[in-house]
Design a protein around this nucleic acid. Structure first.
Length: 914
RNA sequence: GGGCUAAUAGCUCAGUUGGUUAGAGCGCUGCCCUGAUAAGGCAGAGGUCGGAGGUUCAAAUCCCCCUUGGCCCA
């Protein structure tokens, strides 16, 4: 007897076992070995999107990294040279804020930057360990970090290209500003709090009245920031809303129809004396001109979708210098961006009347001025939620300052990007419509930030004429310095070190300059990583074959990478872009701390192991949201057990108990054509699986792979092939061709299966690989993709498909017999089968059929039995009649027959004879 | 409010160009086995295909509306 035996444990114990496997990979320098094995082969360039080096990884990051790892490992095992340089996004506000928390009031940019660098480096290390623990294989000894000076220098090269091509320009833009702290604020630095403010209705005299209206007409606006009225350059209406002109005494007023009652009431008008004269759609009024109440200037009526009917009059006071929505609608109408306020919140000479007055005091004075001019309809004090500075807790203002932009709106960049999108493969395909619709609507890209933790924008200002200078020759010089010293030099070194010798202001000839204080938006850092990394790392090449990130990156990294790439190098940086959805809880809700449905990768790994997490990733359809819950994880753990046990059983049968040796593929293998029919049949199924799985990997449909592998393990192997072949494996003579045929087949199946699962169940595949007897690469990841040698024999396939369908039907008949206590094990049974239209080969294959059914005897009847215990299957035209097998049970093989010598059946006696 | 996207058994997924009684694996329940044993085999139960309407001889599939999620904007 040769019973199965293996040291591959049934209980996986992954949380304990996986770190050992990690140690093994580390010891043998697996990444380097994989690289040198594939060096010179066709290259597959994957470019890793950099996670932000702030905090521990969450389940979404884990999902993303595992998906990447699956692709990279598959491609590599398929024979491609696939270097994987991981990266981190290390600049930016969140890190700067964290560092500032620790520094408590420190203002020295260099000290802040040092703290930021340490903070980012710390979390880069932490995240890297977490990625390693997930089983991802990458060049962790040489990652890319956006604060690295080589990165920074090359990033500036991309910027230089874009400057040369004329994409970079400067324009005013409103930003949050704290006049008390004299600083720009980011959105993350804003806190909302209640604030007392004047609420005023103001009338603007119409210079061109709406059609059909006679006499003086006024457009009514409402605001809670009277100090922004000097910046008014338009009145905005919603194109689809209903507006009306109503008359009160000699004057007529324009407001949204539904708001007229509240406007009239606030203005102290007697509602009975307010008569609607004419109605208009907002769009009909576009282009009419009103007059600013106290500045000699027109204020045209414009249209915008941001107008609401919640409060006010439906005619929105528009000051592009003091609000982001006003600014955006203003760009469409080319309105001037006025912001006559200095950095301490005082009016400048641009609004001479109140020069030097702080905007807070100015509110009351503007109200008085409006009253004097007869423009004020009403004023009262209200309390509303208003943005405040997180540091000094005082109200902030919107103030326009010059910012650096990349031109997308006009010119060629938008068009070229849209065109480039057509040459990219988007997976899923809706990625194309998603990114293009975003590109069509996106405004110019504001790339400047008023912070210190980032790459400086290499511009200079002439101290004499105040001109901003952004010149290729100067930028090149800056790049040289940055490459040598890193961007800290921008803060440490004198301006002259960055300028060519004898450099003079091209406008006024002065030699005195100051450096720009703004830094780049971090999206510009990561947006240039394609060029930086694919060019700087010798094994990589531009453009990338694949980017793989969450679907939020259509607005983020996919788009910023495209803008810099098309802008500087006229082509997309990627050939294929794969996107995945977001991880949500078991009910499809997003994860949030407040709901308490967050599941951390660490939690899954410590309970189930990384392979179960990887299995979850691979079995989910990532196109849309991906659900995770305790139930889902435990289900994956169950699925895992089935695969693991199948592998274990395969391994266990490569051992020969009789001589305490392992099956040796080199000497014991049986050629395909010499193998038992059943073995050849299962090899055909194996070959089908291989091709199916390969296609799924190629089309990035990983979630189908595990489905197929599971089915194969459970159905084709466990309940069909392996159940049948046990008899042959256990009872045949150790080196009998029958047994060797099965073992050869099992060896090939196992080898293939381990390679197929390795990109997903990396730890388990490696562990099982180490138990695989015979000559083999030291790691499953150094193995070549399997080539299964089978001869597709359609007759064989048809025959066994037919047997399998008989087996499926016979199961029901056997179950009935079992329920009637006639039999227990199926070998207790003898089965008579009537088949309405039997194929020719049926009678000659009785013994094979008996083995397939795992019964002691099979008889084919020429006509249907009258036996009432026989069960009919009308659909298949089978009739089964089950009896207790005759003879006695052989103690060795458990089959029933007339026993012979030493109480064994004929076969067992033969097999045991010395 | 807008763009993109989704909804099929308890769970993860199939379901071709509309065409029999909507499938698989897992889980669940029952039975069997005790030579894969914290395993293995067999059988069974489980679905108004998110909802309403429409086109059609025929709709999970095509059209329209709605509901509920998700991402990104406003």
């Amino acid at each position: 007897m040769n019973l199965p035996k293996t040291t591959f444990p049934m209980k996986a114990n992954l949380p304990q076992k996986e770190p050992e496997t990690l140690g093994f990979w580390d010891n043998i320098h697996l990444y380097e070995k994989v690289m040198s094995l594939r060096k010179g082969k066709e290259r597959f360039v994957f470019h890793d999107g950099p996670p932000y080096a702030n905090g521990h990884i969450h389940i979404g990051t884990a999902l993303n990294k595992v998906l990447k790892d699956i692709v990279v490992k598959y491609k590599s095992m398929k024979g491609f040279h696939v270097p994987y340089t991981p990266g981190w996004d290390t600049h930016g506000l969140p890190i700067e804020l964290k560092a500032m928390e620790q520094l408590k009031g420190e203002t020295d940019p260099l000290k802040i930057r040092t703290a930021c660098r340490e903070y980012a480096a710390k979390f880069q290390r932490i995240q890297q360990q977490e990625f390693v623990r997930l089983g991802t294989l990458a060049d962790y000894s040489n990652p890319y970090l956006t604060f690295d000076r080589n990165f920074e220098a090359r990033e500036l090269e991309v910027f230089l290209k874009m400057v040369e091509k004329g994409y970079v320009f400067r324009r005013l833009k409103p930003i949050y500003w704290c006049p008390r702290c004299v600083t720009a604020l980011a959105e993350a630095e804003i806190e909302y709090d209640d604030h007392k403010a004047p609420s005023i209705f103001v009338r603007f005299r119409m210079q061109t009245p709406p059609p059909g209206i006679k006499g003086p007409v006024y457009a009514v606006i409402w605001t809670t920031t009277p100090w922004t009225i000097p910046g008014n350059t338009a009145i905005c209406l919603h194109p689809d809303f209903d507006y009306a002109v109503f008359r009160h005494g000699d004057d007529a007023y324009l407001a949204a129809e539904s708001l007229i009652p509240s406007v009239a009431k606030a203005s102290g008008f007697d509602p009975l004396n307010c008569i609607i004269e004419k109605k208009f759609k907002g769009r009909e009024l576009e282009g009419l001109k009103a007059l600013h109440p106290f500045i000699e200037r027109e204020s045209p009526l414009i249209l915008g979708d941001h107008v609401t009917l919640d409060t006010g009059s439906g005619c929105v006071h528009t000051a592009p210098g003091h609000g982001i929505e006003d600014y955006q609608v203003g760009l469409k109408y080319s309105l001037p961006v006025l912001s006559p306020v200095d950095d301490r919140g005082r009016f400048t000479a641009e609004f001479e009347l109140m020069q030097g007055v702080h905007v807070e005091e100015a509110n009351a004075r503007i109200v008085e001025l409006l009253r004097d001019k007869g423009a004020l309809l009403q004023t009262e004090e209200i309390t509303h939620s208003y943005p405040h500075c997180w540091r000094c807790k005082k109200p902030v203002i919107f103030r326009s300052t010059p910012q650096w932009f990349i031109r997308v709106e006009d010119g060629s960049l938008r068009k070229n990007c849209l065109e480039a999108c057509d040459h990219v493969r988007w997976v899923p395909s809706f990625g194309h419509s998603r990114i293009t619709s975003m590109l069509r609507n996106r405004p110019d890209w504001c790339i400047s930030r008023q912070r210190v933790w980032g790459v400086p924008i290499p511009a200079f200002y002439c101290l004499q004429c105040q001109e901003a200078l952004l010149e290729p020759a100067v930028i090149s010089k800056v790049i040289e310095r940055v490459r040598k010293f890193g961007t800290d030099c921008w803060w440490t070194d004198d301006f002259s070190t960055f300028l060519p010798k004898e450099y003079r202001c091209p406008h006024c000839g002065s030699g005195d300059f100051r450096k720009e204080q703004d830094i780049f938006d971090v999206w510009f850092d990561s947006g240039t990583s394609h060029w930086v990394v694919l060019g700087l790392w010798p094994d990589l090449a531009w453009p990338a074959d694949l980017f793989l990130e969450g679907s939020d990156q259509h607005r983020g990294w996919f788009q910023t990478s495209l803008l810099t790439s098309v802008g500087a190098f006229d082509a997309a940086p990627y050939r294929t872009v794969l996107t995945h959805g977001f991880v949500v809880d078991g009910e499809g809700r997003k994860m949030s701390k407040s709901i308490g449905n967050v599941m951390a990768p660490e939690e899954v790994i410590s309970k189930y192991g990384a392979d179960i997490l990887r299995l979850w990733v691979a079995s989910s359809d990532y196109h849309d949201d991906i659900r995770i819950s305790k139930q889902i994880m435990s289900q994956n753990a169950d699925a895992y057990r089935k695969i693991r046990n199948t592998i274990r059983f395969l391994l266990a049968n490569l051992y020969d108990q009789s001589n305490d040796r392992f099956f040796d593929y080199g000497t014991n293998a049986v050629a395909f054509n010499a193998r038992v029919d059943l073995d050849r049949y299962i090899m055909l199924k194996m070959s089908d699986l291989l091709h199916d799985v390969e296609n799924c990997y190629e089309s990035y449909e990983f979630y189908r792979i595990l489905q197929k592998i599971n089915n194969f393990c459970a159905t084709d192997l466990s309940s069909f092939y392996l159940d049948i072949v046990k008899d042959r494996l256990y009872t045949s003579r150790t080196d009998s061709p029958l047994r060797r045929s099965a073992q050869t087949t099992i060896h090939e199946i196992l080898n293939t299966l381990l390679i197929l699962i390795a990109p997903v169940l990396s730890f388990t595949a490696e562990e099982a690989w180490s138990h695989l007897p015979g000559d083999k690469p030291e790691s499953v990841f150094l193995a070549d993709w399997p080539v299964v040698c089978v001869e597709n024999d359609e007759q064989l396939r048809e025959r066994f498909d037919f047997f399998a369908s008989i087996k499926a039907e016979a199961g029901k008949a056997l179950e009935e017999a079992r329920a009637g206590k006639l039999i227990g094990h199926s070998l207790d049974a003898s089965v008579e089968i009537f088949c309405a239209s039997p194929p020719d080969y049926l009678k000659e294959s009785l013994d094979t059929l008996r083995q397939v059914l795992i019964v002691s005897a099979v008889k084919i009847l020429d006509q249907a039995s009258d036996d009432s215990s026989a069960s009919w299957d009308e659909k298949k035209n089978f009739q089964f009649s089950v009896r207790k097998a005759s003879g006695s049970k052989c103690p060795r093989c458990w089959q029933y027959s007339e026993l012979q010598n030493q109480g064994l059946c004929a076969r067992c006696f033969r097999e045991t004879k010395v």
